[in-house]
Structures are given as C-alpha cells and as structure tokens.
Amino acid sequence: MDDSHLLFAAALLATGASPSSNSETQIKVAGDFLVTSTEQTKFEFVHHQAVADLLQNHHLIVCMALSSDIARAVQSNPNIGFVVPADGTWISLDCIVAFAPNDAHQKEIGEDFINFLLLPSGAAEIANYSFKANTDRRERAFLEPAIKFDPAYQSTTYGLSPLRMSNQDQFQQQIFHQIPPEIATEPSSSD
C-alpha cells in the first residue's frame, strides 16, 4: 500500500514500540528496521486499489491492505486472505461534516441527506457497494450475504465494543486499536 505513515507505524509496532511513539530512539530503531527489511525483501509501494490484482497474479505475496479492497477481491478470488494483526490496527473513518454557516446555504437539506444516508437500508446499500463497514448498528440485516460473511468485511464489523478508542494512541487521522486475540486471529464465519 502506498501509505508511508502507516508503513512506518507498522515498523514501530514490529520493533515493539507504540505506533504513536515520539521517542527518538524508538523511531531510529524502527527506521533502521525498515531499511534493513526493504533490503532483504522485494518491497514496493503500490496504490491500495491495485493490491488485490497484484496478489491475484502473484506479483505480491504479503502486503498491507485496506479491508474494503480485500473484501471486494475475495468475492472473485478465494486465494486472497486477510488478517487483522494481533498487535493492533488502524481504523480509517469516513465522516460527513457541516461547513460553517457562511459556506453552507442549504444546511437543512444537507442534514436531511445525512439522515437518509443513515437509514439502515441506505447504509447497507453503501456497504454493499463500497465494502466498507457502516457505523449504523441496524445496517447488517440488509447486507448481501456474500459481504456479510466475508472474512475481510467481518474484520471491520465484528462489533466495535471490544475495540476501545484511545486518545493516547491517536495516529494522525487514523485510530489505532488493540485487537482482542479472539478477533485478531480467526475471523468467525458466523454473524
């Protein structure tokens, strides 16, 4: 994946540090680890949307990837696997915002539209198309079964309750989570 911030954060985790570490020593260790790793392996940055194809044609064997991209790819290629590492991961969250009143001339219409997007059937339609998990707790009943039971999608919809947000672990706009072992290791095939 072509995200140097996340790659470096993964290197921090791989060297035993927090992905939000400010320690000069830990950052140096992670940097050296990253340099050494890239020298020992065939390593490349690719756009996240190209990851699935490159896995499928064996150009890549292991890579950092977004769950939505892999959930989509798994529909046509069961040889692609996806795991949430046991030492944690990041959640990328898409939000809708309201611009300041001087910039938003029809704010009420915008709010109506946001409310429409949050209807369970509408939220599920978005998930069925984008393979992203939805924040609406009622949405799952409307999901396509192929998506609902896909391992990559399940890794995002397993239930947020065990995945507590932490201010200390905030990394840029990404949120880092400690993943409980039962979720990190074997995605369940049940809902």
């Binding site: 994946m1 996340l6 985790l13 791989a14 990851v51 699935a52 896995l55 499928q56 064996h58 890549l60 064997i61 292991v62 890579c63 950092m64 990837a65 977004l66 769950s67 939505s68 991209d69 892999i70 069961p78 040889n79 692609i80 696997g81 996806f82 795991v83 949430v84 590492p85 046991a86 030492d87 991961t89 990041w90 959640i91 990328s92 969250l93 898409d94 939000c95 809708i96 997007l117 949050l118 939220a123 978005i126 998930a127 984008s130 393979f131 992203k132 998990a133 939805n134 924040t135 990559a152 890794s155 995002t156 990404q174 990190a184 290791t185």
Partner: peptide
C-alpha cells in the same frame, strides 16, 4: 458514516503460514 481497517492481505496459495503480527 463508513469505516474500514488496515490489515495484512496475503496469497493463501503461496504463503504457508497465516501472518499474525
């Protein structure tokens, strides 16, 4: 509205062991 996670994707046919960390 929507969210996704970052994880490790891999080719099941080539890799002998599932990545864990």
């Amino acid at each position: 509205l929507t969210w996704r996670t970052v994880g490790i994707a891999y080719n099941v046919a080539i890799l002998d062991e599932t990545p864990r960390t």
